[in-house]
């Protein structure tokens, strides 16, 4: 009897996976059904006019930080609240991590590679409107530095090097700076977080200082995401 039950369970999981696959296929087909004209006028506009209106070569950045910047603010708020609530809910100050200690070789390599990882993250943030990357990816690469310190040396060392209060401060600066930069658009007489319509000097397309507000928004999102992810990882790793 139990054998039949187990077999039924396996069949059930397989059927669930197959059903999910069929469902996803149908959804993807519906999304990519480009014959329907009513669905694609917006994306056509983004693709054809995006570079001229915003000055950013990277189309994803121009959508994220110009056309849909308000959504980005919402996503950033999610990380802010997650970090705040996690650091509130996990009050364990001292804890040890599971697992083996690494040998000294890993310590050396970690120490050696930290400055170069920092250069990579900063490059991703500052060149977000010209090359792939942007605020979110750059922030994740920057947050790898405290995560590496935590994994190899332990929570206490990592928190003595980069104080949690400082990280929180950096995150708050990022969040407030994003909103202040958005208010600049209101001052000049257009919408909140306006960039293309407000003509903040789009500059020559393809140079470092161009695309108006987008690089500064990238910096704000980058430091915010980096600090937020570091706080989240450090509070989740503290298990008793």
């Amino acid at each position: 009897m139990s054998k039949i039950n187990e077999r039924l369970k396996k069949l059930h999981t397989i059927a669930l996976v197959v059903a999910l696959a069929v469902f996803l296929l149908v959804v993807v087909y519906e999304i990519h059904n480009l014959d329907n004209n009513s669905k694609r006028y917006l994306s056509e506009h983004y693709i054809s006019e995006g570079v001229r209106e915003t000055g950013a070569i990277n189309l994803v950045t121009s959508v994220l930080y110009d056309y849909r910047a308000f959504d980005t603010l919402g996503e950033a708020t999610v990380i802010l609240t997650a970090a705040a609530i996690l650091s509130l809910l996990v009050p364990v100050s001292k804890a040890t991590m599971l697992g083996t200690k690494f040998s000294i070789i890993v310590y050396q390599t970690t120490k050696f590679s930290i400055p170069f990882l920092a250069v990579l993250g900063v490059h991703l943030i500052f060149f977000g409107h010209l090359s792939p990357g942007g605020g979110f990816v750059g922030g994740v690469v920057l947050s790898i530095i405290p995560i590496l310190l935590t994994i190899t040396y332990g929570v206490e060392f990592s928190e003595s090097k980069l104080k949690p209060a400082k990280k929180k401060l950096v995150e708050d600066i990022g969040a407030i700076g994003f909103i202040l930069l958005g208010l600049l658009g209101v001052v000049t007489g257009s919408n909140f977080l306006a960039n293309g319509q407000a003509n903040f000097g789009p500059g020559n397309t393809g140079e470092l200082i161009s695309a108006g507000l987008i690089p500064y928004l990238n910096v704000m999102i980058g430091i915010k995401v980096g600090a937020g992810l570091a706080i989240i990882f450090n509070s989740l790793i503290k298990e008793k």
Binding site: T100, F102, I105, V106
Partner: peptide, 17 residues
């Protein structure tokens, strides 16, 4: 080259553990 040799060493010492 730098990363992968360290990763292999970490995996090997982990298997030893």
């Amino acid at each position: 080259v730098i990363t992968n040799s360290i990763a292999i060493h970490v995996i090997a010492s982990f298997a030893d553990n």
